[in-house]
Design a protein around this nucleic acid. Structure first.
Lengths: 132, 132
DNA sequence: CAGGATCCCCCAAGATACTG
DNA sequence: CAGTATCTTGGGGGATCCTG
């Protein structure tokens, strides 16, 4: 853990990569309250297209974080749920979510302090999530 | 937290966005052991260009997570350090890093189990970090 | 409703070169 | 060594249409 620590230490990177895209964390978070169907997830999340949701779920599944189940009912019924592994990661995602609740304002304050004088910038929510 | 929970709940999103790019988390992590100069960070991280490092640091600074200090020495000397706010987030990033140490193998196993028969795929590290 | 297939756009991130 | 300026690209992610 001294010189070329990080490249060598790719284990940690692996996890960071897992969270370094727009939807993985959000979708995992959306699965916190139990198995859900895609429609449910979509309305719960908001602003994610069906295509992207599927991609994300498949990606999570590929990494062993999510499990897909098809109930052979009359109208096909699909459910996604966290795997045990996914559950262990969710804990930390939750923690980050909680962090946001506590310090989100501080971040927004810093952003406003940093950005120019622009008077009417305050962001209540919705559209304005400026930069990564 | 019922219907349109997540969009409303943009606080959490704000934090997820903070981690939803390739370098933010890694750089924060690289700052865990105290103030560092860009060169140090670069060699510690590995694989990040000077340009991208600067961009990342500036972005973190913009969000109030990192602090930039210029020592007016003979050869200009710049240091970046975590802010108090950044420290509070680092805790959780650390947790994710630790998670990776514990469950990284499980993820890789899942990946291999999922991908076709391909015999010689085992990834020790280095280049092969397949997908997000 | 689940989720493929397509087309398209944009920008994060890489490479390279230059300044103080 | 710190940082900026350009140019380029890959692919994530949006929109739309179509199927079982």
């Amino acid at each position: 853990m001294t010189t070329d620590a990080f490249l060598a230490d790719c284990r940690a990177r692996l996890a960071f990569d897992l969270l370094s895209n727009t939807w993985n964390a959000v979708v995992l978070w959306a699965l916190r309250d139990g198995p859900s169907r895609p429609v449910e997830l979509r309305e719960r999340i908001g602003g994610i297209s069906s295509k992207v949701l599927t991609e994300t779920l498949r990606r999570l599944q590929f990494n062993g974080l999510v499990d897909r189940q098809v109930h052979p009912d009359a109208p096909k019924r699909v459910e996604y749920r966290l795997t045990a592994l996914g559950g262990t990661l969710l804990v930390h995602i939750d923690a980050v979510g909680a962090w946001a609740f506590e310090y989100g304002d501080a971040v927004l304050a810093a952003q406003e302090a940093a950005s120019p004088p622009g008077p009417q910038s305050l962001s209540s929510c919705s559209q304005d999530r400026p930069m990564a």
